[in-house]
């Protein structure tokens, strides 16, 4: 465990020293957040749009921004850089359990996303967003997003270890487009066209988005949170176990 913490600390410092890698994580989600509000705010006014629960469209749109920020997988990009540069082998030649190398990176991604999510929520508040579920809901929102960021980075790290190529890992990160847009990101799921509704229902990210939205717009809805919890738990178990297997079998 100590080794994982030591490597996580080093990865956090690395992130701080590479601010250029953090800029897109803030800029892109906030850009789309502002653009979406500008384009759809008048179509969906607070009064007369029941699914907004009395808030503005910004509150409905905020989970999309949070999920975008949590779906960059920067830990994997740093990892593949180390694979290509040889430092990964340097770490593998030390007597630490090899899982610490991947877990350290994932833990740093979790911590980084807690900060990113908090900042974006604060920006959302400047646009009039209220967290209906209160401070506890805010903490839960942070936990949900940080867990998703860890799961997404975990799968990206798998691609990094399998491909050993920065170009391939970068390309793979575009998987976040279907994951994020085959969801009820503009309107609730029951207002999507039937094919889109089916696609969204099959997409696990939908349940995370709906849980985040529920915390922002309604409060604590047990069944909605439970579905997100199951998705995140399964995702986390899969991501971690596959990462550990990949690094233990790395040849």
């Amino acid at each position: 465990m100590t080794e994982t913490l030591v490597l996580a600390k080093r990865a956090v410092i690395e992130g701080v020293r590479s601010m250029e890698s953090l800029m897109p994580v803030f800029f892109i989600p906030l850009f789309f957040f502002v653009v979406n509000i500008g384009q759809a705010g008048k179509i969906f006014p607070s009064e007369g749009t029941p699914f907004l629960e009395g808030q503005g469209y910004a509150a409905f749109s905020l989970p999309t921004a949070l999920l975008t920020a949590a779906s960059f997988g920067t830990a994997a990009l740093f990892l593949v850089e180390e694979i290509e540069g040889g430092y990964f082998d340097k770490l593998r030649a030390t007597p630490i359990p090899r899982y610490a190398i991947v877990m350290g990176r994932l833990l740093s991604e979790t911590l980084k996303n807690l900060l990113v999510t908090a900042v974006i929520v604060v920006v959302g508040m400047l646009f009039g967003v209220r967290i209906e579920s209160g401070p506890l809901g805010f903490v839960l929102l942070l936990a949900i997003m940080a867990t998703w960021a860890t799961v997404f980075s975990g799968f990206m790290q798998l691609i990094a270890m399998k491909s050993r190529s920065a170009a391939a890992t970068n390309s793979a990160s575009f998987i976040f487009f279907p994951l994020l847009f085959l969801t009820p990101n503009f309107v609730p799921r029951d207002q999507l066209t039937r094919p889109m509704e089916i696609a969204a229902s099959l997409n696990p990210v939908t349940y995370i988005m709906e849980a985040a939205r529920s915390l922002i717009l309604k409060g604590f809805e047990g069944d909605v949170l439970l579905k997100a919890g199951v998705v995140l738990a399964v995702g986390l178990v899969l991501a971690i176990s596959l990462n550990v297997r990949a690094i233990n079998n790395y040849d």
Binding site: Y87, D89, A93
Partner: peptide, 20 residues
């Protein structure tokens, strides 16, 4: 792991984390 405790390794590429 027992081997790794007893060896030092410098590979062909100087494997360094250049941000440190």
């Amino acid at each position: 792991s027992g081997v790794r405790h007893k060896i030092g390794v410098a590979l062909q590429e100087a494997g360094l984390d250049e941000r440190q």
